[in-house]
């Protein structure tokens, strides 16, 4: 039997602790209450190389209503396909790029990240994975986080990605962002549906 400390919901009030400078408004008094941010929704550092991108989306519940109190965390490699984890054992080219971010959803259920498009990383059996970003989603009404992955459209490597291959073909589109341009910047739209017919694929890991 496992000895893990069980997970519990992040609840509706996490914002002042975990995303105090994020898009979720929480302050009952601007002057009295404040807290510093550990990590926010802008992952771009001065020394980060690669293509700057924006990721945004709305997260919906099983009734199609936006979830206005979710917290999304992302974890990704840098543009060279290297994770900023010392246990990864590789030199880090973008020494201050952490590859980790947090975004609270606002009243319309919108989350967003400014980041760098990740490179390819190795997968099972030495096969390369297509560029992707791991999402962990926390919310009131979620007793434990759910994990999903964002993949990029028009990416040749998607066809050979060992994780996408595990997903039934008709559900794969839920994992692939759509691309647009705004003011010269690439914006990837990644809506998440927690429950229902067009439910986003979540992974048991």
């Amino acid at each position: 039997m496992s000895e893990l400390t069980p997970s519990q919901t992040v609840g509706p009030y996490y914002a002042y602790g975990l995303t105090p400078e994020g898009r979720k408004k929480w302050k009952p008094d601007e002057k009295l209450y404040r807290w510093k941010e550990t990590t926010g929704d802008n992952l771009v550092t001065a020394d980060a190389t690669g293509e700057r991108i924006r990721i945004e989306g709305i997260i919906y519940d099983g009734d199609g209503k936006p979830i206005d109190d979710a917290m999304l965390e992302i974890w990704q490699a840098d543009a060279q396909g290297r994770y900023a984890d010392p246990r990864n054992g590789k030199p880090i080219p973008n020494s201050s790029f952490k590859g980790h971010g947090r975004s609270a959803t606002d009243a319309s259920g919108l989350f967003a990240f400014d980041t760098i498009k990740p490179g390819q990383v190795p997968g099972p059996g030495g096969r390369m994975q297509a560029p992707h970003i791991v999402f962990a989603i926390f919310s009131r009404g979620m007793l434990r986080q759910v994990y999903t992955r964002l993949y990029f459209p028009d990416e040749v490597a998607n066809a050979a990605d060992p994780v996408l291959a595990l997903v039934p073909a008709d559900r794969r589109p839920t994992l692939i962002a759509t691309r647009s341009e705004r003011g010269g910047q690439k914006v990837y739209r990644f809506d998440i549906r927690v429950q229902g017919d067009d439910e986003t694929v979540f992974f048991e890991i």
Partner: peptide
């Protein structure tokens, strides 16, 4: 309304 209804993918 906030829990996945389809099986998680292993």
């Amino acid at each position: 309304k906030r829990s996945p209804s389809k099986p998680l993918i292993l």
